[in-house]
Design a protein around this nucleic acid. Structure first.
Length: 418
RNA sequence: GUGAGUGUGGCCAAGAGGUUUAAGGCGCCAGGUUGUGGCCCUGGAGAUCGAGGGUUCGAAUCCCUUCACUCACCCCA
């Protein structure tokens, strides 16, 4: 038997309401903040991600779906959202639009990893990007949008973590002192940290090995090393967050997996699971546009894992959802009635009411059972008697109340029930 | 890539070498007096017990291999 590829899943009809709710809310909140939707292709020239995310990151090195197409072009399935949006910004000359350009996206993301809970090979993200404004207010705006959106989903037991990782001026000196600090404790470090020490020093900070924790705790803090401009930006950003009514926790060990981040980085994490189940992650990326051959343009954004957010919503047990919309199941007995049923179904649908024919050839009892389990609000019964009389029986499922309706009269009667 | 656990009808799941022609529940289909649902009752369909090989008179049950899934690490949403 064929099954969905490893790490992927089907969103079945029964799951759709939650997904549609998410999309609708995300679009609404984005619109409230002035963000317009953008859709980009599922794959890009492999170099878009290699240069954007960084050649030596895990994501590019071992987690991308990269393939050569029949024309010999090297393509990569989108492993994150930002690089594609930046590519589109450059390609379409969006620097000629009023800055910043505010955009959001909802799309699948592909990463070749071993799946586990909350981690898939194809997952989906809601993300936003604000391009062309270096001001700290934009940082706070992006963070607030993410927070408000989760709030609107009922997810209030979350933590907002922020940090600054400086820029090309102040990060190198910090990395130096970090390496010096770790160098003193080389004997107690785990294998991974020994590797990170030279390869990806910032990553040392989020090692989870117990033995490394004392070293992490005594490590220098990036925000103490910020250059004048970065420090000012950091201060201003925190002021803006406070003005927005948010109370972030400064997390000195917060770094991110993409090379393109500068200054502000942030995550929104659930109360349990912590940073291994990050729901939202993002930050500022003032060098990315240039990296992709655009003119120097600052940017700020985040990506939100839809599966993780929906899982958290599900865990809340808030079934929600308003009254079911009207739905008429048409029970029909006999060939003539079946044809009349088709005509009635068409009229109902034209009137904007869902109409489904019960399986023909079954007993009325079976057809009514079907109506009930299919979630019908009404059953329209068409049998030989009704055909003769020229009037059908409309039954309200909630209380069994029945009345006669003329051909074509069902829609008005259903509407009348509210 | 590393480590651990689990694979029995669509779903949940008994069984642990021989009354198994593999329980039970959910779901599905049918019927419960002549054309009416949700509860209840009865019946029915549906499984080469993940796959391949081996041990044995005999394997869902033991051994090997393999695949898949789950969880954790790495990393990330």
């Amino acid at each position: 038997m064929f099954t969905s590829p490893r790490g992927t899943f089907d969103v079945l009809p029964g799951d759709q309401p939650a997904w549609r709710m998410f999309e609708r809310r995300a679009s609404e909140v984005a619109a409230l903040f002035g963000y317009g939707r953008i859709d980009t292709p599922q794959f890009e020239d492999a170099r878009v991600f290699a240069r954007g995310i960084g050649e030596v990151t895990d994501i590019v090195e071992k987690e991308t779906y990269t393939f050569e197409d029949r024309g010999g072009d090297l393509l990569t399935l989108r492993p994150e959202g930002t690089a594609s949006v930046v590519r589109a910004y450059i390609q379409h000359g969006m620097h000629n639009l009023p800055q910043p350009v505010r955009m959001f996206y909802i799309c699948p993301i592909f990463r070749y990893e071993r799946p586990q809970s909350g981690r898939y090979r194809q997952h989906h993200q809601f993300g936003i990007e604000a391009l062309g404004d270096a001001g700290a207010a934009v940082d706070a705006e992006v963070i607030e949008l993410g927070w408000r959106f989760l709030e609107s989903l009922g997810l209030t037991e979350l933590s907002l973590l922020v940090n600054s990782i400086g820029d090309a001026n102040c990060r190198p000196p910090y990395v130096d002192s970090l390496q010096t600090h770790y160098g003193k404790h080389e004997g107690t470090l785990c294998e991974d940290c020994l590797r990170r020490l030279t390869r990806n020093p910032l990553r040392l900070l989020d090692c989870k090995q117990e033995g490394c924790q004392p070293v992490v705790e005594t490590a220098p803090h990036m925000i103490d090393y910020l250059c004048g401009e970065c420090a000012a930006h950091w201060e201003e950003m925190n002021g803006c967050l406070a003005a927005a009514g948010l109370s972030p926790r400064i997390e000195h060990t917060l770094v991110r997996g993409f090379d393109y981040y500068t200054r502000t980085v942030f995550e929104i994490v659930p109360p349990v699971g912590g940073r291994t189940s990050t729901m939202v992650g993002g930050g500022r990326y003032d060098g990315l546009v240039e990296e992709l051959d655009g003119r120097p343009t600052p940017g700020m954004g985040f990506g939100m894992g839809i599966e993780r957010a929906l899982e958290a919503v599900r865990a809340l047990g808030k079934a929600s959802d308003a009254d079911a919309p009207p739905k008429v199941v048409i029970a029909n007995l006999g060939a003539e009635a079946a044809l009349a049923g088709i005509a009635e179904a068409s009229r109902l649908r034209s009137a904007g009411i869902a109409a489904v024919l019960a399986p023909a050839g079954r007993s009325l009892r079976a057809q009514m059972r079907y109506a009930s389990s299919a979630g019908a609000t009404h059953a329209l019964i068409i049998g030989e008697n009704e055909i003769r009389a020229g009037a059908y029986v409309l039954r309200r499922m909630s209380d069994g109340e029945q009345r006669e309706v003329a051909a074509g009269g069902a829609a008005a009667a259903v509407r009348g029930d509210g």
